[in-house]
Design a protein around this nucleic acid. Structure first.
Lengths: 140, 140
DNA sequence: TGCCATTGGTTACAGATGAAACTAAATCAG
DNA sequence: CTGATTTAGTTTCATCTGTAACCAATGGCA
């Protein structure tokens, strides 16, 4: 078990995600899916729910729920797409920007703390390996 | 987002786990936690629920539930620990062994298919990097 | 134009999950 | 020994999650 790759990936991913989420979840009353939506909108504003789902690999139900909560909390703002009445174009509000601005450094600091275990060269290796594995995993 | 390590780990881990689970879940009526319990007992028989929780990093509630279902399905067998009446010593039954024997090759084949994307040298790198990251993640 | 298939998104329901409370047994302190 | 604390494991409850059904708008296409 302890040398089974899928298992180790799962453990590692859980440890990391939990550690990071622990730092913002209750403080900001923000779930992981919500944070992902904020993160992607922070980088690329004016996406539709569909586009967010694609960008984050979340399923559309999860996006729908996260968006609903974020809109209710006035952290993102939805405006109608005049070309297609089904779509809504989403972007962070000032409050959403503020949340993004406060959490992003926390998340990046955790990532950095983790990566501190690796040298610059190893980080490159990791990056390359992950890319290859992500592609390969697609074909499973 | 697409270069944020925790996020990429999460995507990779999910892709891999889902792909593998898809191959045994309905066929064997087995959840991922249940499979983990079987896998660990297959390698090391006669563990208590506590020990399984430690070995798999599952929480004790998850272990309790998986064990209950597996016992009900006669895939594992529980016998009292004469030194401590609270504990039960768990091991695979013949049926459980059979499930293990049939799923293990499937899981290993998936792992191998994934690793086929990497050279022998890269596999070593990956192994080393994961070990380092797992330790580092503990300290988050 | 009018009908059907597709798409964006939400709702409903059922099952999974986790924190916290709980039970029972074991250990420890005096 | 007796009572307090800890430990193994279960149950409860509230929340989360995913699948499937659904609704409304759009895009063919005859």
């Amino acid at each position: 078990m302890e040398d089974f790759l899928p298992y180790r990936l799962s453990i590692l991913s859980n440890r990391v995600s939990r550690a990071i989420a622990a730092r913002y979840a209750e403080t900001f009353d923000l779930s992981i899916p919500e944070w992902r939506v904020i993160a992607v909108l922070g980088r690329t504003p004016n996406l539709t729910a569909k586009e967010i789902a694609e960008a984050t690999e979340m399923d559309k139900v999860a996006v729908s729920r996260a968006v609903a909560r974020l809109v209710a909390a006035k952290r993102i703002h939805a405006r109608a797409d005049k070309d297609d009445a089904r779509r809504q174009i989403l972007a962070l509000t000032a409050q959403g920007e503020s949340v993004h601005a406060r959490i992003a450094p926390i998340a990046l600091a955790s990532e950095e703390k983790l990566l501190r275990a690796l040298s610059a060269k190893e980080r490159e290796q990791l990056d390359a390996l992950l890319n290859r594995l992500l592609v390969a995993a697609h074909g499973l």
